[in-house]
Every structure is written in C-alpha cells, then in structure tokens.
C-alpha cells in the first residue's frame, strides 16, 4: 500500500495546530509575570514556579470546583436514571400509542437549542424562587440532557434479544424488576457513554450559570474562569494557571473513560 501523504501530513499538521495553545497555556502557567513579558512566549520557563496556582486556589477555585462537581453529579445521575427508565418504557411498549407520542416529544427536544429558551427558563427559575442557587442550574441541565440520552439508550435497549425479556416474564418478573435486573446491566456501556457525554457538557456549561446565578458562592468553574480573567487582566500566567487547573480534572476523567466515550460517540452519531 502506498502511503497516504496528504492525509498523513494533514494529520501531523493538525496535531501541531491542536497542541500549540495547550502547550502554551501549560508552560505559561509556570512563569512569573515579569518573565512572561520579557521572554519568548513559547520558551519553557527557566525557573518554573507554582505561585500562580497558589493565586488561583486563593481566589476561591476550590469552592468553584466543588460547585461544578455538585452541579454535574446532581444533574447527570438523575438525568441518566430518568432517561434510562423512559428509554426502557419506549422500547418495551413500542406498540403503545401514548409511548410513541412521548418518544416524539423527546425527539422534538433534540431540535430545541438551549440558548434560544434561556429567557423563559430564567423566568421560571425566578418564579420558583430558585434564582442564584445551584439547583437553578441543575434542573434545566437535566431537561436538556434527556433527549439525546433517551435516543442513545433506546437504540441500545432495542438490541437486547427479545427472548431474554420473554424468559424474565415467564419467571414472573414485573417490568420494574426486568428493567433493573435485565436491561440495566446489559445497557451499562451505553449508560457510561451517556453519563460521560452529559458530564462533559454540563461541567463545561456557561450560559445557565451566567444567567441563573450571580453570587460568588454559586459560581461554577467556566464562569469563574471568565470572572477571574476579567479581574486579573494582564496577569497572563495566573490566567493560564486557572485554565490549566480547571482542565486537569476533565483530562484525567477523559484518560480513564476514553475508550467508552469515543466508541459511544462514534456509534451514536456515525450512522
């Protein structure tokens, strides 16, 4: 086989393009502010320092980190659970008129962009007296995670052989028991994929925290990055440290769950 020069050089070129900003943000985070302005911006620091990270931590990032964890876990666990139950019902009751309509309601949701409905969401949150709480971010996040989760999980449950459901029924198991004891373990790979995907988008969410919270205590990481950046202005190394620090948890999570996420996404969209 001849080598694919075009593809190959493009692949390596892209690697450089993709890596330059990441390399830059990491090395800059270890520089002093003074040396940042006088040395080459792409040269590694001569005397790496950790002061920038200390600044970032003292600016309250531990709190913001915990807020992001609360929002992500608080939204992803219920979102995946209710989506799984709905997906199970939709697949098992495929002949039922009502379930078919419910499914089309969820599929309609795939076409609703979150950005377009933030104003009424803001109104609802105010009326529920939940403005400026983490719950205000959690509830709409769950709602907007549901359509894609139901779609992926239903596709997956549909592949469980009918005979397995039949034998559960013969053994006298109800729908509730069949769902948890049969479908749940068999769907685990898809559940993990959906959970990772939702965690990523909720963890990185910006517009809901921006619109639904205002106080410092309720800030999540992306929003905190933005305010930190506007407060620290010219202190580029400190800003670089804040970006690096907030990125480390997701990169770690990615390293652990990579296989799942990639195969799941490929299968989910690649048809």
């Amino acid at each position: 086989m001849r080598r694919n020069w075009i593809g190959g050089s493009l692949a390596w070129l892209w690697l450089i393009v993709a890596m330059v900003p990441i390399y830059w943000v990491v090395i800059t985070s270890f520089k002093t502010q003074a040396s940042y302005f006088i040395t080459n911006t792409f040269a590694p620091p001569t005397e790496p320092i950790l002061d920038n990270y200390q600044d970032v931590l003292e600016a309250g990032f531990v709190r913001y980190f915990l807020n992001s964890v609360t929002v992500s876990v608080g939204a992803v666990v219920p979102a995946v659970a209710v989506s799984f139950m709905a997906a199970y019902a939709i697949v098992r009751g495929a002949g039922n008129r009502w379930l078919r309509s419910i499914n089309s309601v969820f599929m309609l949701g795939l076409a609703i962009p979150l950005q377009a409905v933030v104003i009424p969401v803001y109104l609802i949150i105010i009326r529920l007296q939940m403005y400026d709480t983490l719950a205000a971010i959690i509830l709409p996040s769950i709602a907007f995670a549901i359509p894609l989760s139901v779609l992926v999980l239903a596709n997956f449950i549909r592949d469980v052989p009918k005979e397995l459901f039949e034998s559960m029924r013969v053994d006298g198991a109800g729908e509730w028991g069949t769902m948890w004891r049969l479908a749940f373990p068999l769907t685990r790979p898809a559940l993990v994929t959906v959970a990772i995907y939702n965690t990523l988008s909720i963890w990185n969410g910006f517009i809901l925290p921006l619109i639904l919270t205002q106080s410092e205590d309720q800030r999540t990481m992306p929003l905190a990055l933005w305010t930190f950046q506007s407060e620290y202005g010219v202190n580029t190394p400190a800003i670089a440290a804040s970006v690096t620090l907030t990125t480390v948890p997701i990169v770690l999570a990615y390293a652990i769950g990579r296989r799942q996420l990639l195969s799941g996404l490929t299968a989910g969209f690649g048809k």
């Binding site: 139950m85 199970y88 019902a89 309601v105 949701g109 609703i112 409905v117 009424p120 907007f144």
Partner: peptide, 19 residues
C-alpha cells in the same frame, strides 16, 4: 410502562417544552 416515562417527561416538559 407509561409511568416509567413520567419523571423524564415531567422535567423535560417543565424546563424545555414550556420554555
């Protein structure tokens, strides 16, 4: 089975369809 879809349907309606 319809009961199983209710939690998802409820929250989805409240924070996506109603908006």
């Amino acid at each position: 089975l319809i009961w199983l879809t209710l939690p998802a349907l409820l929250i989805f309606t409240a924070f996506a369809i109603v908006p």
